[in-house]
């Protein structure tokens, strides 16, 4: 049985798709057979971030409607043969998603894969609700600013009340926080919320802080998930996230900004 992860936030533009691509790649790189599904029907982006947009033939909606088999629609990643992508349909809208259809596809994928990463669309409407409904774990992607925190908080309420686990009174979805686009200089100058401010409201298990980094944009444009860029801080941060999710105990980095040369030489903090 696969573990189903939803990457969600409520707010748009905080880095859900970047995160989905990065962690799916990270899990696959660690040898886990992983599929990442784009739930943003009508606003298909995940295929671009993963650089497979020119190989899309069938999509998620085709599979739900029985117009294609799952294997026809799955795209195998160029960089890692353990990673598959199930792209969204660009010509349809969220109404094409049905709970029954999504459930069937996930059930079938569960047989073959170790991890299913669901890239949720923004908002709290049908697409987002269906992306989280079947989840076992939730990565709540939040930017250090007040509206993103509020929307994440709202999303956490939905996770705890509208998921399948909640409806069946099962163990609740495990929720993790991913603080993205974190700029420690702006935090210090008081322009941006700090980790403590965010945690005061959300109080979740922190899976990682992804520093604001130019490498994210260039990775997106190149269609190579940023986690593959080992020199980039964002890439390293995502690698840490995956390792922590898989149970490794790693100290959190990037809270206080770039580490000085000497500190790095002598092992830094902790």
């Amino acid at each position: 049985m696969a573990r189903i992860i939803v990457v969600t936030s409520g707010k748009g533009g905080v880095g859900k798709t970047t995160t989905s691509a990065a962690i799916a790649m990270g899990l696959a790189k660690k040898g886990h057979k992983t599929v990442v599904i784009d739930f943003d029907v009508g606003l298909r982006n995940l295929d671009l971030i993963l650089g497979c947009e020119r190989r899309v033939v069938y999509d998620f909606i085709n599979v739900i409607n029985g117009e294609a088999s799952i294997n026809q629609a799955l795209i195998r990643d160029k960089n890692c043969n353990q990673l598959y992508i199930l792209p969204a349909s660009q010509t349809r809208d969220k109404d094409a998603l049905t709970q029954e259809g999504v459930g069937k596809v996930l059930e079938e994928l569960s047989k073959e894969f170790d991890y299913i990463v669901c890239d949720s669309p923004a908002g709290i409407e049908k697409g987002a609700n269906l992306a989280l409904y079947f989840a076992d774990d939730a990565f709540v992607v939040t930017n250090p600013e007040i509206s993103s925190v509020r929307d994440s908080d709202r999303m956490l309420g939905i996770l705890s009340s509208k998921s399948r686990r909640a409806e069946r009174n099962e163990e609740p979805i495990k929720e993790y926080l991913l603080l993205t686009r974190y700029d420690s200089d702006r935090v210090k100058s008081g322009e941006m919320l700090g980790l403590d401010d965010v945690q005061e409201i959300l109080s979740l298990e922190l899976l990682g802080i992804i520093p604001e980094s130019k490498s994210v944009l260039s990775a997106s444009n190149a269609g190579i998930p940023v986690i593959l860029n080992e020199k980039s801080e964002a890439g390293q941060a995502y690698a840490d996230v995956v390792a922590r999710y898989l149970g490794e105990k790693l100290p959190h980095r990037f809270i206080d900004g770039k580490q000085g040369f000497l500190r790095r030489l002598f092992g830094g903090r902790k």
């Binding site: 908080d153 939905i158 409201i201």
Partner: peptide
């Protein structure tokens, strides 16, 4: 005992005791 998140509503016919935080918007 669970946190009450933004957008959630809780109604109690008697007393209501909450052990966790109640978020803005709840």
């Amino acid at each position: 005992t669970q946190p009450i998140r933004s957008g959630q509503r809780i109604y109690a016919t008697g007393d209501l005791i909450i052990m966790s935080q109640v978020s803005a918007g709840a």
